[in-house]
Design a binder for these strands. Structure first.
Lengths: 219, 219
DNA sequence: GTGTCCTGAATTGCATGCAATCTATGATAA
DNA sequence: TTATCATAGATTGCATGCAATTCAGGACAC
């Protein structure tokens, strides 16, 4: 999207859970931490609110979205919505991707591998988000890109706590999808991704865990 | 979405084309017009940027999205993306809608009728947007609601100039969709809306008009 | 012990001042 | 005439000050 650099920085802190879910983020606190004044921080917080990363209560400030506050039904809605769009966008990506897109995707995959090897949960969450964004932007459908941006942020936030446990087992699936896009095989990318999302949805519906088992691999 | 009241006010000015597409909106100008200072205006502009209503150029300010700058292919992408989500959301709406939802939908339809009778193009655009939002929010799928918000804004902006010419002939279709939702007939709502969007897409693809003929009724 | 009210610290939200940057205009030289 | 450059105006972006609001904790009455 068109996040400002500052908003992107703050978003990274949240996705990596350096700022934990549910936190009350104060303008003064972030201003000091990021060495800017409160004004640009406040503007960035508004952006993040529009992207669904924080909720702003009148005269009480912004709170990072807390997965514990989100009912399972809402998580299912979130994934079902992605399911309607993403497989199609990935099939577009297989047609429209440029070499730059492929590089971005490969970079995100590599970052994820490194994060898993290093056991760095925050970095893995960031890589997951970068991967979702790079795959989507390869579709070169700006409307879909804009529509999915808040869903990707929410997904990475909502599953931030469990992602380090379940992402590693699902990473090969991501790699396979990326490979299909590289090979311009839209149908395979479409089907793989839809199956991937279906598995997550199924595990949520089975009630594996109120916190979600995003890759369908119960402990 | 969670627009601030100020951002919503500015958005209304843009959708009604009181602030015309392509305008360079200055913080000082809006501040004076809305009787507030520049700070809250700047925050609102950031929100609108996240929603895709304006584009912000560094150190040059914000510009209202101009339909003339948007290629037909991108408009088709926009509508194709809505087509993936909205019919499904409306079928959800037929299941989940509350009485309050039906009231909002009826209000939007009535506002559109009044605007057409009065020949008020700005009011009609606003009613169109309110209708899209009320239909979608009746689906009670927050993720889909958030994802579609920027698409609805963009749609109403992109078609702002031609909407007054084509919306009247398409209004009965909207009314029929609303009726299906009221009757809890999800399949009909789904099919009617998909057909509606397909017609618009087809007319764009046929090149009826670079500006779009959003309801498929060439002059 | 329980509930209510009050006070104070903390935070938001808004207004304004100012430096840095950009655009446009007109002057100058080739 | 055309191109280049300098200057002036306007606008953004950031910092800071202050009033209004909210929440937490304790005193007090019952």
């Amino acid at each position: 999207m068109t996040e400002s650099p500052l908003a992107a920085s703050i978003a990274r802190l949240m996705i990596s859970t350096e700022i934990p879910p549910g936190s009350h983020v104060t303008a003064a606190g972030l201003a000091e931490r990021l060495h800017v004044s409160r004004t640009p921080v406040r503007e960035a917080i508004r952006e993040l609110a529009a992207l669904g990363l924080v909720v702003v209560h009148d005269n009480r400030g912004a709170f990072v979205v807390d997965p514990d506050d989100i009912p399972t039904a809402e998580m299912i809605d979130l994934l079902a919505t992605r399911r309607r769009l993403e497989p199609w966008v990935l099939s577009l990506a297989a047609e429209r991707r440029t070499d730059d897109d492929l590089t971005l995707i490969a970079d995100a995959l590599a970052a994820g591998e490194r994060a898993m090897a290093a056991g760095d949960a925050g970095a893995l969450n960031l890589a997951h988000h970068a991967l979702l964004r790079s795959l989507t932007s390869a579709g070169h459908n700006e409307a879909a890109d804009i529509a999915l941006a808040p869903l990707h942020y929410r997904t990475c936030l909502v599953f931030a706590r469990v992602a380090p446990l379940v992402l590693p087992s699902g990473w090969p699936q991501h790699a396979a999808i990326a490979q299909a896009i590289r090979s311009a095989d839209g149908d395979t990318a479409h089907d793989l991704h839809r199956r991937h999302l279906d598995e997550i949805i199924a595990s949520l519906e089975a009630g594996d865990d109120a916190d979600g088992e995003p890759d369908g691999h119960p402990r």
